[in-house]
Design a protein around this nucleic acid. Structure first.
Lengths: 235, 235
DNA sequence: GTTAACAGTTAACGCTGTTCACTCAAGCTC
DNA sequence: GAGCTTGAGTGAACAGCGTTAACTGTTAAC
């Protein structure tokens, strides 16, 4: 009952490796159930011993990719153990962009398609969703650390409007008790970073900026300032 | 040769209407060639009299949707003929968000998928691409008008770095001769607006903000300020 | 009135995800 | 060790997909 399980785990890893290979070479459309089976010299129905459907296979691949990205970013920001928190956020943001540019197909699979609405009742608890949460926590944790080490100036409640303050306050526990204005700036950081990288990777930017590296750098400086950080000046 | 052409144009419109219907009801995956044919009571090969491939049909649908969005936004900002330019930009931004939220499937088809790289030599001249250009021109024109009416303070060249200034200057003609710093702020406006709407529509935001309307309003105020506008204060 | 062009159909090909019935080898129990 | 069970893998099949080829009517033009 042991060597049996090991063999199963091995082929399961092989399946996901083949799927990954097909994703890189042919985009998300290229990773079909039959194509994966062909890659392994198996017949298509054999894969149903490991995944209940094609969608489940893709879901497992997504979860794996999220985890890979998360650990890659953790390694990156923990490499300079004595780096200050601002530098770590800078590493995180740049690391995310580098990963996205180096693995556009994988990034597209993770962030390019629409996330299904949270079905209200039972929290959509797919492995991919959980992995995405772990990924998102990276940023929340780091921003909260930055805040608690040196609180940055943030908009007052009456500048944000009562509705927004109420919504942000509801998220306060997820941000380690930060005030609404500080959560607003953190959300701003994430929103702009995410938007920038998506636009660059998905090519929505290179009809005006063929190489968006300098623009990204300038924007990173700008959004870091809002969090009280002085990131490296652009060139 | 006249009633013939009219009949052809009519069925062509019917095809695109059916495709649109399927897009709304079943997402971009639902608008298949056979499904469109079924919707019209035709056999699948009949559609090849009107489009050389399924991809071409989707392309035509995309172009139509771009044009619909463009004219809708033009109508919106021209309804108040005497509104000042800042208010028109505000209408444009809010109109885009409203359209995206009201037509998520259409928005996903237009902006959700990756844009193919510009192939360098011959400018990718699909109808969809041209329509996207007309859409993008809406913003460029309006921002340029705002700039020429009342130039807003913008970062100096040495604040942006030589590389970025060079790239922005190359785009100067498309922005009616605006200086690099002003183009930078315009790009910033578009980038943030686009990122915000994409995140909201694609559900990447509603795990932290179930209703992003207030956040959007606050951000719109912020990015408008950078262009020297005083948009309506949040609530 | 003949001819040519065109809309549309039927049949088929190769592809996809998926299911069912089956085989064969490995592991456990008596 | 014999018998049984479990599970990995196969082959055949189904429905649906985009696409092509050959064919049938209808309709406009000379």
């Amino acid at each position: 009952m042991d060597s049996r399980d090991r063999r199963r785990a091995a082929t399961l890893a092989e399946i996901k490796a083949a799927a990954r290979r097909l994703l890189v070479s042919g985009g998300s459309a290229g990773v079909g159930l039959r194509a994966v089976a062909r890659e392994l010299g198996l017949t298509p129905p054999a894969l149903y011993r490991y995944f209940p459907s094609h969608e489940a296979l893709i879901g497992a691949l997504i979860a794996d990719l999220y985890d890979e990205l998360t650990t890659a970013l953790m390694d990156l920001q923990c490499a300079d153990e004595d780096a200050d928190l601002g530098a770590r956020l800078y590493l995180l943001a740049n690391g995310l962009r580098d990963w996205a540019l180096a693995h556009p197909a994988e990034f597209g699979l993770l962030f390019g398609t629409a996330v299904p609405e949270p079905d209200g009742d039972g929290h959509e608890e797919t492995p991919g969703h959980q992995a995405a949460m772990r990924f998102g926590a990276l940023f929340k944790e780091l921003v909260a650390q930055i805040w608690h080490q040196k609180p940055f100036p943030h908009p007052a409640d009456d500048e944000l409007g009562t509705v927004l303050v109420e919504q942000l306050t509801a998220e306060s526990e997820h941000f380690h008790g930060m005030p609404p204005g500080a959560i607003y700036l953190s959300l701003n950081y994430w929103t702009r970073l995410y938007g920038l990288i998506c636009m660059e990777v998905f090519g929505q930017l290179h009809w005006v900026l063929p190489d968006a590296a300098a623009y990204f750098e300038a924007q990173l400086f700008e959004i870091g300032q809002a969090l009280g950080l002085d990131c490296p000046e652009p060139e």
